Computed example of a mutant assay.
Amino acid sequence: MSHNCTYVRQHYQVPAEIGRRVIAYGKPGVILADRGHYIGVVLDEDPKKRISNYHPTHEMQYGDMAETLPLKEWLVLPFNHAWDDLNWNREAREDLVRVWAATRGQAKYKAYERLQDYCHSIKAMLRFKVRRA
């Protein structure tokens, strides 16, 4: 989902949006993903900076927008496309994957996880192109 928590804001009447600080079950963090009925939060104390699902109203307190985010948004272009292909190749635009990760390598792997049904092996990930969103 990439609608920046629109459903959660409308259905649960909460100010959820990507980049907002929250306190989830007493632990501070930042919303980094729209997960349909849930919000994806990275807790400040998590050294691996994993996005975990939380219900938007259960033991959740909303704060201000974060000044910096613990993860970066990346664009991953798989399947032997080039960045220039995005201007004219519809298939390349459809294959583009947006992910949140700390490093380029993590971004490639997260894109691979989403696309592994279309990849013959994990070696396909080596050809993925990555850049900051």
Rank of each mutant, 00 (worst) to 15 (best):
H81P: 03
Q13C: 11
G36H: 12
V130F: 08
P78V: 01
A101S: 09
A102F: 11
E17H: 15
A111R: 01
R20Q: 12
G26S: 02
G29D: 07
N80W: 08
F128E: 06
I51T: 15
N4W: 06
R127E: 15
R35L: 15
Y118I: 03
R90T: 11
Q13N: 13
R98N: 08
C5P: 10
P47C: 04
A102D: 13
A33R: 08
D117P: 03
G19V: 04
L115P: 08
A66H: 07
I23N: 03
G40T: 06
L69Y: 10
C5R: 04
Q116H: 15
N89Q: 13
W74K: 04
C5Y: 05
M60E: 05
E17I: 08
G26T: 03
G40P: 08
G63A: 02
Y12E: 04
Y118Q: 09
K48L: 12
E113L: 15
L77H: 02
G40W: 11
R35A: 13
C5M: 11
E67N: 05
R90D: 14
C5Q: 09
M60C: 02
W88A: 02
S2F: 06
I31E: 11
E73K: 14
L32H: 12
N4P: 14
W83A: 01
R93L: 12
T57A: 05
E67S: 04
V42N: 08
I51L: 13
V130L: 03
S2R: 09
Y12Q: 07
K123G: 08
P70F: 10
V99D: 07
K110E: 14
W88K: 10
R50E: 15
Y38H: 14
T103D: 13
D46N: 04
H55W: 13
H3L: 10
Y25L: 00
I23C: 04
R132T: 14
W88D: 10
A111F: 09
Y12S: 04
R90F: 14
G26M: 07
E94Y: 15
L115M: 09
R21Q: 13
D46A: 00
A24V: 00
K72G: 07
K123P: 00
H3G: 00
E73W: 07
N87Q: 12
D44N: 14
L96D: 06
A92S: 09
A92Y: 11
H37P: 11
Q106K: 14
V22A: 00
W100P: 07
R127G: 15
Y38V: 04
P78C: 02
V14C: 08
H55V: 06
V22G: 07
V8I: 14
L43N: 07
G36F: 11
Y54A: 03
D95S: 08
N89A: 11
Q10V: 02
L86G: 02
Y54T: 03
A133V: 00
H3D: 09
Y118V: 03
R114P: 03
Q106E: 15
E94L: 13
Y112Q: 00
G29M: 03
S52T: 10
D44Q: 13
A102T: 15
I39M: 15
R21E: 14
K48P: 06
V14E: 05
Q106W: 12
M1T: 13
R20G: 08
A82C: 08
H55N: 04
I23S: 01
A24E: 00
G26E: 09
Q106C: 05
H37Y: 12
A66I: 01
Y7E: 10
H37V: 07
Y109Q: 13
K123Q: 13
H3F: 06
G40I: 07
